[in-house]
Amino acid sequence: MNTTQIHPFETMIVIMSRLVKDNDVAATGTLSPIPAAALLLARNMHAPNLTCLLYGDPEMRLTEGLHEAFGFMQRGLLDLFFLSGIQIDRHGNINLSIVGDYEKPKVRLPGGAGTNMVSMMAKRIIIFSTVHNSRLFVPEVDFVNARTMDDSIPWRRGTLSNVVTPIALLKSDRQWGGITLEATFPGHSVKEIAENTGFDLGATGREIPEIDPVGEDELNLLRTDVQSKLREIYPLFCDMIWGAD
């Protein structure tokens, strides 16, 4: 196995999997191959009692569609969910609808679907993004689909814990009042990360550690057992990372 060449998404998957706790009930939404892989890896590593609800899993049998999954979350039975967006700001607000002016948008997207409700009702939220730049991390989002850190009103169960990108692990910091830098990924400096983030990550004057390197056991499981299950749900993603089956 070639462990010297690790795809940035593989690092993301491994880092994200370490954030998952044993006995969690966790779910992923549409277009979420990285979180889905992270959950499968966690279940193979340190979280054997993890329950994974992976949207699009051909083997997952529901009684009654998303309606049922949403009801499950509203009852407080979901510990962890993964969200993403086209823009994310320092307060953990997510935009999935409009870039630019609402009346004359530069880009119009399909929207947030269950993002807002899920962000209120899951006990913990992790945001992921396949890019890390100042177009994604903006001072203020152009449209708010979900406020993942605002616990003023209305009542909510959980909030944002972390943000994972191809170059950094960020976390939600209540005292700081926003998202801060927790650790850098190998080959990426604090300076590079700060320059590609459109708001202050609170990294100055602090020692920022690098993540513990991706382990051989993690990478091996990811490329074998995890890949073969992931392929049932996300074949094109698997082709992109590991080549055609």
Binding site: M60, R61, L62, E64, G65, L66, H67
Partner: peptide, 9 residues
């Protein structure tokens, strides 16, 4: 109908 969809709702 497909149980993974919201058709009954």
């Amino acid at each position: 109908t497909d149980s993974s969809r919201n058709d009954r709702l």
